[in-house]
Amino acid sequence: MKQRVTIIGATSGIGRALTVEMHERGYVVGATGRRLERLEELRNQLKTNIHIQYMDVAELDDAINQLDQLKKDMGGLDIIVLNAGVSNYQKESVGRQADLHVIDVNVRGFANLASYSFNLFEEQGYGHIVGISSVASLFGWGLNIPYNASKSFVNTYLQGYRQKANHSDADISVSTILPGFVESEMTDGKKDLFWVQETEKAAKQIADAIERKKNEAFITKRWQLVGWLVKMTPNWIWNRM
């Protein structure tokens, strides 16, 4: 039986590219997002073994119901990739309401689906939770405070569930994916970015990490060096940047 993977946030960037990559590797794929026209485009492109479902992860109860419906349509669920996320790296969108919107999507929306999926996988005896974090999760940054903080939450949250999985009778894997700069709507028009990777290459490395059930993977691999440098940098240096 083909493995069934659902990608939450599949209408653009890494999510869309990963949907195509997993489909090409022979998976039955479920794709969710808020932009139905883009989901329809994906279904028309891939044609078979693709199921789509509208989902706004900030609508917590609706998101669970929609995941259940998608699981039913697919005949089950083996892997869930939690990719939906937003950023407010724009001067016109800085402020309390903008910060809370990022938290609603990247923290509450993420935790809602991750915790539900873990319980689901415990009941069925197996499963794989994959969370898309970011290298930005490793430090606080004044120009994108809620995004970096929300991705730091993702890291710690998944680490906790990974430990919980190790003490579970079920065969559950938990993977944290930390991309650097990848071509997407989040990076469009931004200057002074470095090591910006093609979306398709990033998707291939993420798919490899999923298949190897890695605990943690930097995408692309060179960003592991940046992660090490960030962890070694004293706080007083960060505070003066």
Rank of each mutant, 00 (worst) to 15 (best):
R108A: 15
F139R: 08
L77A: 05
L138F: 02
K71R: 13
D73A: 15
A203E: 02
W195V: 12
T187M: 02
P146C: 06
K151Q: 07
D78G: 09
A209F: 00
L70V: 10
N83H: 10
I177V: 03
K201T: 07
L82D: 01
H101S: 13
H128A: 04
Y89P: 01
V130H: 01
F181L: 09
L113R: 12
I129Y: 06
E200N: 02
M74T: 03
Y116F: 01
N106E: 08
S115L: 14
Y161T: 09
L100H: 11
F194C: 02
K72P: 07
S117A: 15
I210V: 08
N83Y: 08
E122V: 13
L178Y: 09
L67M: 15
L82W: 03
E92L: 06
M186A: 11
F110V: 10
L70A: 07
V94H: 11
V107H: 05
L113D: 09
E122S: 14
K151V: 04
Y147R: 09
S173T: 10
S137K: 11
L82P: 01
Q90V: 09
G85L: 06
Y161H: 10
I80A: 05
F139D: 04
F139W: 06
L77C: 10
E122H: 13
G75R: 06
D99Q: 12
D208E: 11
G127H: 01
D171H: 00
V130Y: 00
D78M: 13
V135C: 00
K204Y: 06
L67K: 06
G127P: 02
I206V: 03
N88T: 04
T176R: 14
Q163R: 14
A202G: 11
K190W: 14
Q97L: 14
A98W: 06
G142V: 13
V182T: 04
A209Q: 00
S173Y: 13
V105K: 10
A165G: 00
K204S: 11
V130K: 01
I210S: 03
L70D: 05
Q205H: 12
F121K: 07
A114V: 08
Q197D: 02
N155L: 12
K91E: 15
E185M: 11
E185Q: 14
P179V: 04
L70N: 02
A203P: 06
S168H: 01
Y147C: 09
K151R: 09
I172Q: 12
E185H: 14
Q205K: 13
D169M: 07
F139Y: 14
V81K: 07
D73C: 03
N119G: 11
F153R: 05
N106C: 09
V154G: 06
S133A: 09
I210R: 02
K71V: 11
K190F: 14
S117N: 07
S168G: 05
G125W: 09
Q163P: 03
I210G: 01
I177R: 02
G127T: 04
G85F: 04
D78R: 10
G127S: 03
